[in-house]
Nucleic acid binder design. Structure first.
Lengths: 333, 333
DNA sequence: TTGAAAGCGATACCAG
DNA sequence: CTGGTATCGCTTTCAA
């Protein structure tokens, strides 16, 4: 068995209170005794049992992180941010993956609560209305991260409208007039709505441009592939395709590659997100960089602040984005 | 404050022992009392405090997972496997990322220990000799996963020699004779050694083939890019390039793309690993599928078995691999 | 079948 | 500055 505080106390000939004091240096201890205790600790390789400690202090130094799927690079990126910043404040990450199952979101919310996590970050990709009551009950700091939907919880994100507006203007600036936009869904709860509006606004500000909007079935690579076929088939004059998600853009690039259509020479393609593959793929993808790492980092930062009792209003945090200009877009000839 | 077992006991008019019995059904409780207790639990929304429970049972239902970087898709994949199987046995994952820092590996080993994790899985990408003594001290199940080096701990992997041998034979079967192999390093502790041997053996068994071995500086995409330049520059007759890691292969494909060399028409390229991007990239990459998810799954399975006292010898577990034939390789004309 | 009481390993308050 | 002791929330003997 591992040594306990009692073992140390006995061997050092002091009380457990004293041992506790030296390991936490919570109260003054004579340097003589401190030294002896430290020696015994060394000797016994004593390490305080954090579980016991948690029980009395009510601090677990654990943050629960519920994610959809680490297999999505943007999720992994957020978790990196969460973890790295968490560690700076001695917080550890308890990880749960839902694989898109709403039931699981609720289940893990409960589970993490029994494990006494001090805060919870949920990275979701669906809409979940049952969430509300559960999160209220918990009474622990909670941040909701969702790249697709908008729901009424504290969150961290970029200004999707503005980003989309800028990207469209960037393409217009390159001389493109027939810019197709691949949207996923413009309904109420979708962040996509903002993006779509951004595109529309930019287009409407330029007389020689017209809205060309296509809707994809979903937002995976295959969906981009399918829409690309439609666009190319029906709309020969399109010179640029702006996709509301990088995943769609990759699908578009794949379709164009398979059909020997040169990017960017014949057609420019841009995405949204800057997921990992965007800079690796050939051609490299021009896209809007959503700072996933920072989003995670800021999310946990917010939780820790709240834990420390520092003011934390319920407002969303908006992070800056960037237009990453890469090989898939070019000035029109 | 959340309700405790005492609150439940008081409200139900029974002792806490009884409450404990019903929530664990560890001992018979009259159905009448059970019902009442259950009602109160419902009413108070009582959820047992797992921390307190851990303290007495010595079971935290926590497995520590130390990884290099979730940003590497294969790591994320392993963690998925670990977590999904872990959950089946009610285990949760405590995640720590080292970003390649050896010191951090040791540090987190200690940390996880104080957090009373019941087992540890380390996903590493370096050699770490100081590990040995630390892991022995812990006396908890430990599995070591490393895609690059071999170190003397229980691990889960594929037969790298055999995989490399098969892939080389596959290319030979396609009619290729001048097959370049990009190795990272053939030294003692490198798994790479086995791969290199596999390639050599296959080549040696075919009279009209000759070893063409290039060494990359490291094993990232850029390194593959650099080596490709060398190969193309110095070895015009090469018709196939077999890379010891998918990352290198992606670099090679990028170089060929940038220099207008058609894959697979002019040259075939194959990789090793089947990381996520391999099947997305164009052309899709022919490669050896290392079952990362399964490796993680089996690793935690092993730990849980050991925890249950089921026999667990110290031998490595070898998982099957597969040759994924995709678009980057073709029969020679 | 039930309850009382002893711990699990630490912290923290109260005396001295 | 140091020690004794209650306590955190729960499980687990031991008696009844």
């Amino acid at each position: 068995m591992a040594a306990t505080i009692k073992d140390v106390a006995k061997k050092a000939g002091v009380s457990i209170s004293t041992v506790s004091r030296v390991i936490n240096d919570s109260k003054p201890v004579s340097s003589e005794i401190r030294k002896r205790v430290l020696e015994v600790i060394e000797e016994l390789e004593y390490k305080p049992n954090e579980v016991a400690r948690s029980l009395v202090t009510k601090k677990s130094y654990l943050i629960g992180v519920i994610v959809t799927d680490l297999g999505d690079s943007y999720v992994a990126e957020m978790v990196r941010g969460i973890e790295e910043v968490g560690k700076m404040y001695d917080y550890d990450i308890l990880l749960c993956s839902t694989f898109g199952d709403k039931e699981a979101e609720l289940k893990y919310l409960r589970l993490l609560n029994t494990k006494q996590v001090e805060g919870i970050i949920l990275i979701s990709n669906t809409l979940n209305n049952e969430l509300h009551e559960k999160t209220k009950q918990l009474r622990i700091p909670f941040v909701y991260l969702n790249r697709f939907y908008y729901q009424d919880y504290p969150t961290v994100k970029i200004d999707n409208f503005e980003a989309s507006y800028e990207m469209t203007n960037y393409l217009i600036g390159l001389g493109h007039k027939d810019i197709a936009y691949i949207s996923n869904n413009g309904d109420k709860f979708y962040l996509e709505k903002d993006k779509l509006e951004g595109y529309k606004k930019a287009i409407s500000e330029h007389e020689d441009c017209e809205e060309i909007i296509y809707f994809s079935k979903d937002r995976d690579i295959e969906d981009g592939y399918d829409v690309a076929r439609d666009i190319i088939g029906f709309n020969k004059e399109v010179t640029a395709i702006f996709c509301s998600y990088d995943e769609l853009a990759i699908g578009v690039l794949n379709y164009l590659y398979d059909n020997d259509i040169k990017v960017p020479d014949e057609i420019s393609v841009t995405g949204f997100g800057d997921i990992k593959i965007a800079s690796i793929f050939r051609p490299t993808l021009t896209t809007i960089k959503e700072p996933f790492y920072d989003i995670g980092a800021v999310a946990i930062r917010r939780i820790i602040k709240e834990l420390k009792g520092e003011i934390a209003d319920n407002s969303d945090i908006i992070l800056p984005f960037q237009i990453q200009k890469r090989g898939s877009s070019i000035k029109i000839k």
